[in-house]
Simulated scan of single mutants.
Amino acid sequence: MDESTVKVGGVVLPGLFKSIEVKADAQVEEQQVEGKTAKPKQAIGFEDAKITLELVLDDGPQQTKLEKLAVIQNLFKKPGQQKPVVHEFVHSHAAVRGVSKVIFKSLSTKEQSKKSELTVSIEFWEYIPMKITAKKSGKGKSASGSVKLNADYQKYLSSGSRGKAPKTSDKTAATAASDTASTAQYKSKLARLEAM
Rank of each mutant, 00 (worst) to 15 (best):
K39N: 11
K41E: 08
K41C: 01
Q42E: 09
Q42R: 13
Q42I: 11
Q42T: 11
A43L: 13
I44Q: 06
G45K: 07
D48G: 08
A49M: 08
A49Q: 06
K50H: 01
K50G: 05
K50C: 00
I51K: 09
I51T: 07
I51L: 14
T52H: 10
T52Q: 14
L53P: 06
L53Q: 05
E54R: 15
V56I: 15
D58Q: 14
D58L: 15
G60N: 09
G60P: 13
G60S: 07
P61K: 11
P61Q: 12
Q62E: 13
Q63F: 12
T64W: 00
K65W: 10
K65M: 05
L66W: 10
L66F: 13
E67H: 07
K68H: 13
L69K: 14
A70V: 06
A70H: 11
V71I: 15
I72S: 03
Q73V: 04
N74V: 05
N74W: 00
N74E: 09
N74Y: 05
L75V: 02
L75F: 04
L75Y: 01
L75I: 09
F76Y: 15
K77L: 11
K77C: 08
K78G: 12
P79F: 04
P79R: 13
P79G: 10
G80E: 03
G80V: 01
G80M: 00
Q82D: 15
P84L: 03
V85Q: 12
V85W: 06
V85E: 13
H87L: 07
H87G: 02
F89D: 04
F89C: 04
V90M: 12
H91L: 08
H91Q: 14
S92I: 12
H93T: 15
H93D: 15
H93A: 15
A94H: 05
A94F: 04
A94N: 05
A94K: 01
A94E: 08
A94L: 04
A95G: 11
A95E: 13
A95P: 02
V96C: 06
V96D: 10
R97V: 10
G98H: 07
G98N: 08
V99T: 09
V99M: 09
V99L: 06
S100C: 14
V102T: 11
V102E: 00
I103C: 09
F104H: 08
K105I: 02
K105L: 08
S106F: 05
S108L: 12
S108A: 14
T109N: 08
T109Q: 13
K110N: 10
Q112T: 03
S113A: 13
K115R: 11
K115C: 03
S116F: 04
E117H: 06
L118K: 01
L118G: 00
T119G: 00
V120Y: 00
V120C: 01
V120R: 02
I122H: 07
I122N: 06
I122Q: 03
E123R: 11
F124W: 07
F124D: 06
W125M: 11
W125P: 06
W125L: 13
E126T: 04
E126V: 05
E126A: 00
E126D: 04
